[in-house]
Design a protein around this nucleic acid. Structure first.
Lengths: 130, 130
DNA sequence: TTAAATGCTGGAGTTAGCTCTAAGTCAAGC
DNA sequence: GCTTGACTTAGAGCTAACTCCAGCATTTAA
């Protein structure tokens, strides 16, 4: 799979795919003889994983650390687990905060609905009294 | 209330408070005769609102638009409501995505736990066989 | 077999959102 | 009155995360 196919498949710009690899967010992608990227199943898996994690707000730096640990093999299992736990906990807190804000927005929208209805009534009254 | 008190109260850096005001995220704050900021209850309310919305990921630009509409009075009620609905919907989607990622992280953490246990067993075996 | 499209790299440029600096003003304690 | 620390502004600087560009190589369609 060449880079533009991967780009389409995951809706990630080509430049971003190269950037992620350059920054070590993805283990080096397999290449053809002439040096063109040729994504394997596993390479695609990494792309998808990174897309998902970035979407949830994990930083480039954190993900680079994770991949670096991954590259060091089994002796980093515990460290990787700890990193994931820390990120999971942060994510949980962000979701919590966002849910509160969601509720607040919903409340605000309701208030606006009431105010708009009240405004319209006011307008009708004025028209009738003319 | 002066700027450093507000900064402490909401855990927002002083520079950020000034920046928000400069960018029009907060209606102009009341001043003392000599020109120092003197936050009223309402000013504080805005600060808190902006903090909450920024925390949920609403952009500076979006919030500026909202405040601009607010400044134009009642005839922008419908527009403000529509803006809030659009942001609410985006927020919902972000939360949804993040919840999927949270579940995925939890799954991954469990897998790590199993792998770590398996690794330890392996080590014990080796020690015994010595 | 040649033109057009696509790929490569290193490095510069961009954007959002702050964060800091300089140079000056104001306020509170001695 | 003077010093010290907090406040003011305009504008520069910073960081994360891309995004674009130049200049060159490779692949593909005509």
């Amino acid at each position: 799979m060449n880079i533009s196919e991967v780009s389409k498949k995951y809706s990630i710009p080509i430049d971003t795919l190269r950037y992620y690899e350059k920054e070590g967010l993805i283990p080096p992608v397999h290449r053809t003889e002439s040096g063109l990227r040729d994504y394997s199943e596993q390479d695609c898996g990494w792309v998808e994983f990174i897309k998902c994690m970035r979407g949830a707000g994990l930083s480039i730096d954190t993900l680079r650390q994770y991949i670096t640990l991954y590259g060091k093999g089994n002796r980093t299992l515990q460290k990787r687990k700890n990193l994931l736990i820390a990120e999971r906990d942060k994510l949980k807190m962000r979701i919590d905060e966002m849910q509160h804000t969601l509720a607040r927005l919903n409340g605000k929208i309701e208030t606006y609905e009431e105010r708009i209805v009240a405004c319209e009534k006011e307008l009708l009254k004025k028209r009738k009294s003319k």
